[in-house]
Amino acid sequence: MNRPPPPLLVASDLSKLFGGVVALDTLNLEVRANDILGLIGPNGSGKTTFFNVVTGIYPATSGRVTFDGAEITGFSTQAVYRSGISRTFQRSRLSLPLSVFDNIMVGNHKRLNQGLWFNLVRRGAFREEFEANFEEARTLIRVFDAPLAERMFEAVAGFPMIDRRRIEICRALISHPKLLLLDEPSAGMTHDETSALMDDILEVKARFKDLTIVIVEHEMGVIERITNRCVVLNFGQKICEGTYQEVSRDRQVQEAYLGIE
């Protein structure tokens, strides 16, 4: 047998305290390359906090995070993004007055030339970059929804939740991250919409061969369908991991969800 590839993301003894509240408690967690990993657990079990600590929104109280072989503990949000991790937010955080294209380009920051001279004076070169990126964004969004790709210059405020989720995922994907963190993509959507979005995510995974995804979800149907591995958190600690079938049979997991002590 081949040796398994080294894990893409490793959290070692990661802790996060808010005042006296322990959100992450010496958490040890590995994300293997090319997985779709489901991160599940009851409310307040530390799933979103884990995302926020990994992406540098909150500094970790203690412990380490390594990504792709390099330590990223204490990195700023900007540095984490540049190293190849991008994310969506639980409460969709798009810029509603801006166009679909603008929102996606915010996610492409590191690949766009940000120089003053380039942007203001070399308009010809800027135009080429703009057109190339437009094509790329349109191709990407077509993976999700073809009609949406024809409405690139409309304000996001005019789109329904499912399209906003799609746009948000495109914003996270446009920069070709190695790791995509999806924070409850089904929140605020109907059952059918959720199902359609999961098709999209699987389609994306099929197209981007090297993409690894961590998804936080409450809908167990979603987890069962798209993940190949699950980690269950409770009180900021990992209580179980394995395939969905394995973890769903685990007694500790059932207790955590049913609240039995």
């Binding site: 993004y81 937010f89 603008d102 003053l116 942007n119 203001l120």
Partner: peptide, 29 residues
């Protein structure tokens, strides 16, 4: 000058920061 600024990636950066600086920071701004 201001028009070109607005119609460039820089103008986009400025808008993104105005509308949600946490999200903007998560994308490297």
């Amino acid at each position: 000058f201001v028009r070109r600024l607005e119609r460039s990636w820089i103008g986009l950066n400025l808008d993104a920061i105005r509308l949600d600086d946490t999200a903007a920071a998560c994308f490297g701004l």
